[in-house]
């Protein structure tokens, strides 16, 4: 069984994103980029399935400019067997990425696609679901547990009131939530080895996909700030304020 794991390189989650002064975009120049944390969880899930003898190959894929190869090197260092780079300098929105993934799936024929539930830059939470739709595959988003079966996979997924278990026919798309696993770190020897592994390059044209962005970002800005409050010195003062001033209790 082959597993495809799409990964995205995003602003490191420890860095607070800021809008450019002219509001034209997010300031990213010179800042540390990392693999999207949900994608690391997806990759870890795929690697563990391979280690458990339930998968034979883990293929990592990333779409974007030359820099996304860095993310693929990380994926290879973590344990992906192969890496595919769909090279494009166009801004890639979720629907375009889903179409690129669909085209790659039709070439690679994986049994499972495991993606992060959302990328922490655009926070769209769309690509996995869109891919499932385009392939007419079943989908299980926000996975907390994955159990492979014969011709099917059972996925415990996080819902608003708890969890539910879905049984999907294979092939299927799964998107990962935080509790699925704790991703490993790449070891130095593996990082070194990953540098020498080949990355296969594809283009949207070769895949027959139009990637022109549909949505237009007119401006970005910091959200409205709450006015600063006050510090109170005791529980009694706090309660008095909540009763008499804020009138919430």
């Amino acid at each position: 069984m082959k597993i495809l794991v799409p990964v995205k390189r995003v602003l490191d989650y420890n860095i607070k994103a800021r809008a450019k002064a002219d509001g034209s975009g997010v300031a990213l120049a010179g800042l540390k980029m990392s693999l999207n944390p949900f994608d690391e969880i997806a990759l870890e899930a795929a690697i563990r399935l391979k280690e458990a003898g339930l998968a034979t190959e883990v293929v990592a894929l990333s779409c974007g400019d030359a820099m996304v190869q860095e993310g693929l090197r990380t994926a290879l260092a973590l344990g992906a067997d192969r890496a595919l780079w769909v090279s494009s300098t166009t801004e890639l929105q979720p629907l375009a990425v889903a179409k690129l993934l669909q085209a790659v799936v039709l070439r690679e024929m994986p049994t499972l696609v495991i993606c992060g539930k959302q990328a922490i830059d655009d926070d769209a939470n769309q690509t996995g679901q869109m891919l499932a739709a385009l392939l007419n595959w079943g989908q299980a988003t926000n996975a907390a547990e994955i159990q492979m079966g014969e011709g099917r996979v059972d996925v415990v997924r996080e819902t608003d009131g708890g969890t539910e278990t879905l049984r999907l026919l294979l092939p299927a798309v799964i998107t990962t939530d935080l509790r699925l696993n704790e991703p490993r770190y790449a070891t130095l020897p593996n990082i070194m080895k990953a540098r020498k592994k080949p990355i296969e390059t594809l283009t949207p044209e070769e895949l027959g996909v139009t990637v022109e962005p549909r949505l237009k970002t007119l401006r970005v800005q910091e959200p409205p700030q709450r006015p600063a409050g006050i510090k109170v010195d005791s529980v009694a003062t706090l309660l008095a304020r909540l009763k008499n001033e804020a009138k919430v209790i």
């Binding site: 994103a17 809008a19 922490i120 655009d122 949505l215 970005v220 800005q221 959200p223």
Partner: peptide, 13 residues
Amino acid sequence: PIYAGSIWATVCC
């Protein structure tokens, strides 16, 4: 909101 809510984007569809 994007970037965990630290930025708001105005988007035309």
